[in-house]
Design a protein around this nucleic acid. Structure first.
Lengths: 250, 250
DNA sequence: TCCTTGCCATGATCCACGTCAAGAAAGAGC
DNA sequence: GCTCTTTCTTGACGTGGATCATGGCAAGGA
């Protein structure tokens, strides 16, 4: 595989942000991306008392699996996760990738079992939010409820976009959309929008986009030939954002 | 096209349930499917004061469109709707079909503009829930907030299932899954699980499932030849639920 | 009754992407 | 360091479902 040239390998590993288990919400570097945004300081302190800050999860380690009892929501603190759902014949669909500040498990709220599987893509950590206690707190903190609704709605909106992607887009468009989506999410987290690390495998990407691994691999090569990106293993650099934007058809 | 035989055309038109504009929540036939479930009677009366009960929408009439200001959520009272999102080159994805008691517009909560387009598939009516007032009420009615979270989570979960369908299933499996999903939804509404009316066009079905109209048409014919269904125009009868269940791979 | 329009069915053809196969890299374990 | 395994790349080939094209049928209008 060609090595990157002309590219400062600036990508940082999202796993390295924050593994410290004892950072309270108001001192957390994710504060402005995360749930507590808009809460009063006193509410924040209360919220802190129910949040469990987990040990690290290793690559491939499950956070939860479908049909296990639903007790908590999770917010990624560092690293990244994927979620999948499984048909009963074993086929899997990767339903999403999750980065620091993002919620996992929202699709389980209406049941008492998780609806999907979640596992770490690299060494990662989460904040665990026991749902029953959250509900109790919600009664006194309308702002918390509103935040929750907002989060859910945002994920819903995003999933509708994925339906458009899966149902109507060509392979090129799918991959371009995926790369730009990652780019934007890294950017709001203070990372480079053009140089980053793909913590998921080609297989995960392909699965998520409804393509074969081979197709993804070929597309990466072609995008590189066409000077749209530089890619070397898991590190990628987006060289022509404009053309990518056009390609993705949104 | 072959006419239905051996099939009592029992299907009723969902449009006919309830067009009366002045039924309060506690008298509404949809009560046990709808939002107010679990609210105290006094809260229910309050809720009634903000709900606007609309006139009828005609077939193809828009309920709202993307980029219009988001002010209200809607609950289908009678009839049915579809929602779509549009890529900037005009391609559309039908993101969902909605029947009485179901919410439309949940994906807009995190923005102040609607994220999708919604239009009536037949003569239909809705209850309109002004979102700001809902939020105010939510502060005093935790049960209302919980209902909202539950609704959102349920739709999210459903959409993840659609991602599996769009990304991994074959044309046969897609159509079988679709028919069974409709069947279940009609059943909980007190209609026949096996004989019903398709208020959406072949085009809408095809679009929603990520197929071409021709494919859907051919599949209907083949399912009929294989004795899985009887279909005549828009009325369908599911003849072999078990085989359909197997086909859909869940 | 005829014409128009929209929706649906079905056959013929084509192509984007999947599948199969074979190496090459890159990690993981020791 | 070396082996073993997994992941990734690339080529050759096959196919499911899209596209194109044609015709039927039902509803509505004049």
């Amino acid at each position: 595989m060609a090595q990157l040239d002309n590219v400062t390998p600036l990508f940082k590993d999202l796993a390295k942000i924050e593994h410290d288990q004892n950072v309270a919400c108001h001192d957390c570097s994710l504060y402005r991306l995360c749930l507590p945004l808009g809460l009063h300081n006193s509410d924040l302190v209360k919220l802190d008392t129910i949040i469990k800050r987990s040990n690290n999860y290793k690559r491939n380690q499950p956070l939860f699996s479908a049909d296990k009892q639903f007790l908590s929501l999770f917010v990624v603190r560092s690293g990244s996760f994927k979620t999948t759902i499984t048909a009963n014949d074993g086929r899997e669909q990767v339903t999403g990738f999750y980065f620091p500040g993002e919620f996992i498990g929202l699709d389980a709220i209406h049941q008492n079992v998780y609806q999907s599987n979640a596992e770490a893509l690299e060494t990662s950590s989460v904040c665990e939010l026991p749902y029953e206690q959250m509900q109790e707190f919600g009664k006194e903190m309308p702002q918390l409820q509103i935040q929750m609704l907002t989060r859910l709605s945002k994920e819903l909106s995003n999933d509708k976009g994925l339906m458009l992607l899966l149902g109507k887009k060509t392979a090129d468009e799918k991959l371009a959309s995926f790369l730009l989506s990652l780019s934007k999410r890294f950017q709001v987290r203070g990372f480079s929008a053009t140089n980053f690390h793909l913590s998921m495998s080609r297989g995960d990407i392909a699965n998520h986009l409804g393509l074969a691994v081979e197709t993804v691999s070929r597309l990466f090569s072609r995008f590189q030939d066409d000077q749209l990106i530089n890619i070397a293993g898991k590190s990628i650099s987006l060289r022509d954002m404009e053309k990518l934007e056009v390609l993705c058809g949104e």
